Amino acid sequence: MVTGGWGGELVLAGVVLVGASVQRMAGIGFALVAAPVLVVLLGAGQGVGLANCAAGVISAVGLVGGWRQVRLGAMVPMVVAAGCTVPVGVWVAARLSGPALLVGMGVLVTAAVLLVMSGARVPALRGVPGAFAAGAASGFMNSAAGVGGPAVSLYAVNAGWTAREFVPSAQFYGVLVNAFSIAAKGTPHLSTAAWLLVAAGIAAGAVIGKWLAERVPEGPARRIVLLLALAGGVSTLLKGLLGA
Rank of each mutant, 00 (worst) to 15 (best):
I224V: 15
A133L: 15
A112G: 15
Q171W: 11
N52V: 09
G148I: 08
W91S: 14
V80I: 15
P188G: 07
V109Q: 03
V15P: 00
R164K: 14
L63A: 08
V216G: 08
V88L: 15
L96Q: 02
R95M: 08
L10R: 07
A194T: 02
A134N: 08
G130D: 07
A81C: 11
F132G: 06
S181W: 06
L102W: 01
R223A: 14
G8N: 06
A55R: 03
G209T: 01
A34G: 11
S181F: 04
A100W: 15
P129F: 11
G106M: 06
S59Y: 02
A134K: 06
N158T: 12
G4R: 03
N142D: 02
F166N: 04
G201W: 14
T162H: 00
G127T: 07
V48M: 10
V86P: 07
G47R: 08
V16R: 08
F166E: 01
G29D: 06
G89H: 13
A144K: 05
T236I: 12
W161S: 07
I224K: 04
P129Q: 12
V64W: 14
V152A: 08
A137T: 07
V70E: 14
L190W: 14
G83T: 03
L230T: 04
Q171H: 15
R95F: 03
M105C: 14
L237R: 00
A145I: 08
I28G: 02
L108M: 06
I182C: 04
G8T: 10
W195V: 02
I182T: 10
P129R: 13
I202S: 07
A206D: 12
G5Y: 05
V177K: 02
L226V: 05
L230W: 06
E165N: 06
A82I: 00
A151C: 09
V216M: 09
G29E: 04
M141Y: 02
A34K: 03
V207K: 01
G47N: 08
G139S: 10
L101E: 01
G174R: 05
T110G: 14
E214D: 14
K239H: 14
P87W: 12
P123I: 12
A93G: 11
G106D: 01
A20W: 00
A163K: 04
R222A: 10
V2N: 10
A179Y: 07
